[in-house]
Amino acid sequence: MIAFTLPGFDLPKFIRATLAEDLGEGLPGGGRDVTSESVIPAEARFSGVMDSRDAITVAGLPLAKAFFRHLDPECRIEALVADGDQVASGTDLMRIEGRARALLTAERSALNIVQHLSGIATLTCAYVGAMREGSATCTLLDTRKTIPGLRFLEKYATRQGGAQNHRMGLWDAAMIKDNHVAVAGSVGEAVRRARAAGVEKIICEVDRLDQIEPALQAGAHHLLLDNMDPATLAEAVALVAGRVPTEASGGVNLQTIAAKAASGVDFISVGRLTQSAPAADIGLDFKPL
Rank of each mutant, 00 (worst) to 15 (best):
Met1Phe: 05
Ile2Cys: 11
Phe4Gly: 05
Phe9Gly: 13
Leu11Phe: 03
Pro12Asp: 12
Phe14Ala: 10
Ala17Arg: 10
Leu19Ala: 13
Glu21Tyr: 07
Asp22Gln: 06
Leu23Glu: 07
Gly31Ile: 04
Gly31Pro: 11
Arg32Cys: 13
Arg32Val: 12
Val34Cys: 14
Val34Gln: 15
Ser36Trp: 11
Pro41Gln: 06
Ala42Trp: 02
Phe46Trp: 15
Ile56Tyr: 00
Ile56Ser: 01
Thr57Leu: 00
Leu71Ser: 10
Leu71Tyr: 12
Arg76Ile: 06
Ala79Asn: 12
Ala79Gln: 13
Ala82Met: 08
Asp83Ser: 04
Gln86Asn: 09
Val87Thr: 02
Ser89Pro: 00
Gly90Asp: 13
Thr91Arg: 15
Arg95Trp: 07
Glu97Asp: 05
Gly98Val: 03
Arg99Val: 05
Arg101Gln: 15
Leu103Glu: 06
Thr105Ala: 06
Thr105Asn: 06
Arg108Pro: 15
Asn112Pro: 09
Ile113Asn: 04
His116Cys: 05
Gly119Ala: 12
Gly119Asp: 08
Gly119Cys: 08
Ala121Tyr: 03
Thr122Leu: 00
Cys125Val: 00
Ala126Thr: 01
Tyr127Trp: 04
Glu133Thr: 06
Gly134Pro: 04
Ser135Trp: 02
Ala136Leu: 12
Thr137Leu: 11
Leu141Gly: 00
Leu141Tyr: 10
Lys145Glu: 03
Lys145Arg: 12
Thr146Val: 11
Pro148Leu: 02
Pro148Tyr: 11
Gly149Glu: 03
Gly149Arg: 09
Glu154Gln: 15
Ala157Tyr: 05
Gln160Cys: 15
Gly162Tyr: 00
Asn165Leu: 00
His166Lys: 02
Met168Lys: 02
Leu170Phe: 05
Trp171Lys: 13
Trp171Cys: 11
Trp171His: 14
Asp172Tyr: 12
Ala174Pro: 10
Ala174Asn: 08
Met175Ser: 01
Lys177His: 08
Val181Cys: 04
Ala184Tyr: 12
Ala184Gly: 13
Ser186Asn: 09
Gly188Met: 04
Glu189Leu: 15
Val191Asn: 07
Arg195Ile: 06
Arg195Phe: 02
Gly198Phe: 03
Val199Asn: 11
Lys201His: 13
Lys201Phe: 14
Lys201Cys: 08
Ile202Tyr: 06
Cys204Ala: 15
Val206Pro: 14
Leu209Met: 03
Asp210Met: 07
Leu216Met: 14
Gln217Val: 07
Gly219Tyr: 09
Ala220Arg: 01
His221Gln: 04
His222Thr: 10
Leu223Gly: 09
Asp226Leu: 13
Asp226Ser: 12
Pro230Ala: 02
Ala231Leu: 15
Leu233Lys: 09
Glu235His: 14
Val237Trp: 06
Val237Phe: 07
Ala238Pro: 01
Ala238Met: 10
Val240Pro: 05
Arg243Asn: 08
Thr246Asn: 01
Glu247Gly: 06
Glu247Pro: 08
Ser249Glu: 13
Gly250Trp: 12
Gly251Ala: 06
Val252Thr: 04
Gln255Lys: 14
Thr256Phe: 03
Ile257Ala: 10
Ala258Ile: 01
Lys260Asn: 02
Lys260Met: 08
Ala261Lys: 10
Ala262Gln: 09
Ser263Trp: 03
Gly264Arg: 08
Asp266Ser: 07
Asp266Gly: 08
Ile268Glu: 03
Ser269Trp: 03
Val270Ile: 04
Val270Asp: 00
Arg272Thr: 09
Thr274Lys: 03
Gln275Leu: 14
Ala277Ser: 14
Pro278Met: 08
Ala280Arg: 01
Asp281Thr: 08
Asp281Gly: 05
Leu284Asn: 07
Pro288Val: 13
Leu289Thr: 13
